[in-house]
Simulated assay, not measured.
Amino acid sequence: MAYKITDECISCGACAEECPVSAISEGDDQYVIDPDTCIECGACASTCPNEAIVED
């Protein structure tokens, strides 16, 4: 089960820097996670200062 970024995202980019497979990129309004690339390691969720990343 991949992770997703909720509307709580403040677009700080901390999650993208932490992702070991570069599954996170800037979207139109906030960062987004490519579910096909995500390896479900949870590194992004533990890094997010706003707790905006949850399991999908």
Results as ranks from 00 to 15, higher is better:
residue 12 C to W: 05
residue 9 C to Y: 01
residue 16 A to P: 01
residue 44 C to E: 02
residue 4 K to Q: 14
residue 11 S to P: 05
residue 32 V to T: 15
residue 34 D to A: 15
residue 54 V to M: 11
residue 45 A to F: 05
residue 12 C to Y: 09
residue 54 V to D: 02
residue 48 C to W: 04
residue 30 Q to S: 07
residue 2 A to P: 14
residue 31 Y to E: 09
residue 41 C to H: 02
residue 36 D to M: 13
residue 39 I to P: 14
residue 43 A to I: 06
residue 21 V to Q: 06
residue 47 T to M: 11
residue 50 N to C: 02
residue 41 C to I: 06
residue 11 S to Y: 03
residue 39 I to T: 15
residue 14 A to I: 13
residue 6 T to M: 04
residue 37 T to M: 11
residue 24 I to Q: 03
residue 6 T to H: 07
residue 18 E to M: 12
residue 9 C to P: 04
residue 20 P to L: 01
residue 10 I to T: 09
residue 29 D to E: 15
residue 47 T to G: 01
residue 27 G to Q: 00
residue 49 P to I: 08
residue 52 A to Q: 06
residue 31 Y to T: 01
residue 12 C to R: 13
residue 8 E to F: 08
residue 43 A to M: 12
residue 6 T to Y: 08
residue 38 C to K: 14
residue 35 P to H: 10
residue 21 V to H: 05
residue 8 E to D: 15
residue 43 A to H: 09
residue 11 S to E: 01
residue 1 M to K: 11
residue 18 E to K: 13
residue 28 D to K: 14
residue 40 E to D: 14
residue 24 I to N: 03
residue 22 S to H: 01
residue 49 P to C: 08
residue 50 N to L: 00
residue 28 D to C: 05
residue 25 S to E: 13
residue 9 C to A: 03
residue 32 V to M: 10
residue 41 C to Q: 11
residue 27 G to Y: 01
residue 44 C to H: 06
residue 27 G to V: 03
residue 40 E to S: 14
residue 53 I to M: 05
residue 46 S to A: 07
residue 37 T to K: 14
residue 13 G to W: 03
residue 6 T to I: 03
residue 54 V to I: 14
residue 14 A to N: 14
residue 21 V to C: 10
residue 50 N to R: 04
residue 32 V to N: 04
residue 52 A to T: 01
residue 28 D to S: 12
residue 34 D to T: 13
residue 48 C to K: 01
residue 30 Q to W: 02
residue 29 D to S: 15
residue 38 C to N: 12
residue 36 D to H: 15
residue 43 A to G: 07
residue 28 D to W: 07
residue 48 C to G: 00
residue 42 G to H: 05
residue 29 D to L: 11
residue 30 Q to T: 01
residue 47 T to Q: 13
residue 19 C to S: 15
residue 42 G to S: 09
residue 1 M to R: 09
residue 8 E to I: 04
residue 3 Y to N: 01
residue 34 D to H: 15
residue 25 S to V: 12
residue 10 I to V: 13
residue 48 C to E: 05
residue 53 I to G: 07
residue 2 A to T: 13
residue 22 S to W: 00
residue 29 D to H: 07
residue 17 E to T: 14
residue 34 D to P: 15
residue 9 C to Q: 08
residue 33 I to S: 04
residue 2 A to F: 00
residue 6 T to V: 04
residue 33 I to V: 06
residue 30 Q to K: 11
residue 3 Y to S: 06
residue 53 I to S: 11
residue 2 A to H: 10
residue 42 G to D: 10
residue 39 I to W: 15
residue 38 C to F: 12
residue 51 E to H: 04
residue 56 D to I: 05
residue 31 Y to W: 09
residue 3 Y to H: 10
residue 1 M to Y: 02
residue 24 I to G: 09
residue 23 A to M: 12
residue 55 E to N: 05
residue 50 N to V: 03
residue 38 C to A: 12
residue 32 V to R: 09
residue 39 I to M: 12
residue 44 C to I: 09
residue 51 E to T: 00
residue 33 I to D: 06
residue 43 A to K: 11
residue 19 C to G: 13
